[in-house]
Nucleic acid binder design. Structure first.
Lengths: 208, 208
DNA sequence: CTTGAAATACCCCAAACGAGCGATTGACTC
DNA sequence: GAGTCAATCGCTCGTTTGGGGTATTTCAAG
């Protein structure tokens, strides 16, 4: 268990929320919050040179959104952890946040005690999020349903690695003609008519 | 807040753990645990006809793994929620579990009180998981880095929808020659030499 | 100021591809 | 025992693709 002080910065446009959070965090043993910014631009100008561990980032900022700001800061400070704060969760902003490198995603009505716990979790390598948000994320992993046979899936996987008819045929000991037939069947099952689209659809549907 | 009793089944090969969990859960107000199975086969034979809301599924079962069992049961009972239990978390089994439809993923050393809370969360549509596990999942969303220019990305996206040179060219008002040049540059940047592999790599690296 | 990347456009050519045909075998279902 | 489907093998033909070049403009970074 680490016992050092965790250094936190806040990016939040609402003055009241920002000041309240700052006071709560900075007033708690083990937490320090000396930097708070009302917008993304000022945060981006300063944060990379500050001794910060975790950033609390509002998503709905004036000017550049918290997601944009996080994307930029993650480039220059990859080890910095970001916890996104938002009033309401919508799927798009959750996924965008995760894609740009956020470590946690919390609703603004999270109570202060929990917030501090979550900051600590992030600092220790975790990713706090409500179980409702987690459910949305893992739902994106579900496989819808797989119309392809085993052999077809095998062929498609090899195609996705850039092999052509002959190479696939050699790899799985078939005639190139058979491979071609499989591919034709794959196309018809996926309702596509090119390799590119087949692979795109197959990946999106988690078939390969 | 729902107040009905939550009906639970357990699949766990260790007799002691199974019996302990059953007693704890069944002995708690609002929870019922009348079914427990020592292996996947017996679970698969019975569960689909039982009045169950949530299944606690051990991953390391003798015979078929808990992941396999979950995959099968999710097909016949899509509304059933599964919480995977495991002694130690490795990335592969986490992702496999999520892909086959698990709703939660918990370590076996989770204390009983928390376990009950997590069962309730799943029942109410959440997906409990430790923040360490959540971190691993969201890390899979990170974009590594994007060598492609905007125009190239645009072209690659259109290619992934099955368009050929000419169609792409028409779509973005370019000469087919230019499209071809872009594609050649894409291939060289991604170190591939076919459309199929380019799309595969691009999706895996979240470029499109 | 110049080097480089990005975006644009063009040419040739051999190899690969997709569409359209047909066919046999074995397994599983109704 | 008729029918379906996966898996295997085969052919032709016209189109598309990928690799090899070359060249201009623009715009940002060094």
């Amino acid at each position: 268990m680490k016992n050092e002080t965790i250094h936190i910065a806040i990016v939040e446009d609402d003055n009241e929320i920002r000041q309240t959070l700052t006071l709560i965090i900075d007033g708690t043993e083990g937490f320090s919050c000396k930097y708070a910014f009302p917008d993304g631009e000022s945060a981006m100008a300063s944060i990379e040179n500050l001794p910060i561990d975790v950033v609390l980032m509002d998503i709905d900022l004036p000017g550049k959104s918290g997601i944009e700001v996080t994307r930029n800061l993650k480039k220059t400070c990859p080890e910095l952890d970001f916890i996104m704060l938002t009033v309401q969760s919508d799927d798009d902003s959750i996924f965008e946040s995760l894609c740009v490198g956020a470590s946690g995603y919390l609703l603004k009505d999270t109570n202060p005690a929990d917030l501090l716990v979550h900051i600590k979790e992030v600092y220790e390598g975790g990713s706090p999020m409500s179980s409702q948000i987690a459910r949305r994320i893992i739902n994106s992993f579900r496989i819808i349903d797989n119309p392809l046979s085993e052999r077809e899936t095998e062929v498609l996987k090899l195609l996705s690695h850039g092999m052509n008819y002959k190479e696939v045929a050699n790899d799985i000991f078939l005639s190139p003609h058979t491979v071609k037939t499989h591919i034709k069947n794959i196309y018809s099952k996926l309702h596509v008519n090119s390799r590119a689209e087949a692979i795109y659809k197959a990946i999106k549907q988690k078939l390969i």
